[in-house]
């Protein structure tokens, strides 16, 4: 028996054989949570800034004014998961020694840095007088001057700050999806639609997070409207994603199969589409039509659906490796 031929066959057939090579599942819950929180934070930035831009006045609810800071905390939380996932954790600074315009990871690393000052300015300007006094009292003496200058700057250039926040939010939200598209060997990630899809989902989960707060009625109604639009856009983009896969040749059809009959069919349609999109959509529509009191369950379902979307796209991508193709 010549070893070469039979060994060659053995190797070729057993690639992807679960007993030999279970899967190339290297991105786990850390990345899922990071992408989820990143999208949610992007949504909070876009929505708080957009609310203020459209109404022309600061948030009426105090909790809403503090949300940019909460968003930054959540983002730091998410980034700590990302950092946990890195193989060389203490070389992360190297991202900032360079900038590669063709690399979404490089864009992302820089957006993540720029989001912090933008969020700080957005947040400082959203605080009301009482909150500002509270913050001033708790700031160490040598920083008070800086705080006052930043707050003044934020008030003086409010429109620029708000527009920058929207821009940063859009950039962050898009990046969480486009990041996945950089790996062509992952068939289920090979779509530019993932960027806008994750952005729309981020806006929806951001709105859901804000809806969990006790809000002024006008603010609440505006957020529900934004949420309905975001959910609608998400449904369209999901359809486009699957249509795109289905019409793009063997690799795409393989990726689409994962969601249309393959292993991710049930979880994807049940958790993401039905639980995370259609049921909240129906409930928000019923709420508006029949003037029912809102329930916290709607945002909870949206958040769960958004988490499921990241989890399933991440898992489906890692299960759809190029080498399984004929």
């Amino acid at each position: 028996m010549t070893p070469t031929t039979s060994q060659l066959l053995e190797t070729v057939t057993t690639r992807g054989n679960p007993q030999i090579d279970p899967s190339l599942h290297v991105w786990g819950w850390q990345i899922v949570l990071y992408l989820f929180l990143g999208g949610l934070v992007a949504g909070i930035f876009i929505l708080t800034a957009a609310l203020e831009l459209s109404s022309g006045e600061r948030a009426r609810t105090r909790a809403l004014g503090a949300m940019p800071f909460v968003a930054l905390l959540l983002l730091s939380f998410g980034m700590s998961f990302l950092w946990l996932d890195l193989a060389h954790r203490f070389w992360a600074w190297r991202f900032y020694a360079t900038f590669r315009p063709t690399s979404p990871m490089s864009w992302g690393a820089w957006i993540l840095v720029l989001v912090y000052p933008a969020g700080l300015l957005l947040g400082l300007g959203s605080l009301d007088e009482a909150q500002r006094a509270w913050l001033r009292a708790r700031t160490p003496g040598f920083l008070r001057g800086l705080l006052a200058r930043l707050t003044d700057a934020s008030d003086a250039h409010r429109r620029a700050v708000l527009l920058t926040s929207v821009l940063m939010g859009v950039g962050l939200g898009l990046y969480t999806g486009l990041l996945l598209g950089t790996m062509p060997a992952r068939l289920a990630w090979n779509s530019a639609v993932l960027g806008p899809l994750f952005l729309a989902s981020g806006i929806s989960t951001g709105a859901a997070t804000l809806l969990l707060l006790k809000l002024d009625e006008n603010e609440r109604r505006a957020l529900v409207r934004w949420d309905l639009v975001a959910i609608g856009v998400e449904l369209v983009l999901l359809t486009l994603l699957l249509v795109g896969f289905g019409t793009s040749g063997e690799a795409g059809r393989y990726a689409a199969h994962g969601f249309l009959g393959g292993p991710y069919t049930a979880v994807f349609w049940s958790l993401v589409v039905i639980m995370g999109l259609l049921v909240p959509l129906a409930m928000e529509a019923i709420e508006a039509r029949r003037h029912l009191p809102s329930v916290a369950l709607v945002p909870v379902l949206i958040l769960a659906g958004g988490l499921a979307l990241r989890w399933i796209v991440l898992a489906a991508g890692q299960a759809s490796a190029f080498r399984l193709l004929p």
């Binding site: 049940s270 958790l271 639980m275 049921v279 409930m283 019923i286 709420e287 029912l292 329930v295 369950l297």
Partner: peptide
Amino acid sequence: FEVLGVFLGGVLGAYS
């Protein structure tokens, strides 16, 4: 999945 559906159906029924 059916129990998940029962929950969602129950939510829709109760809310509406």
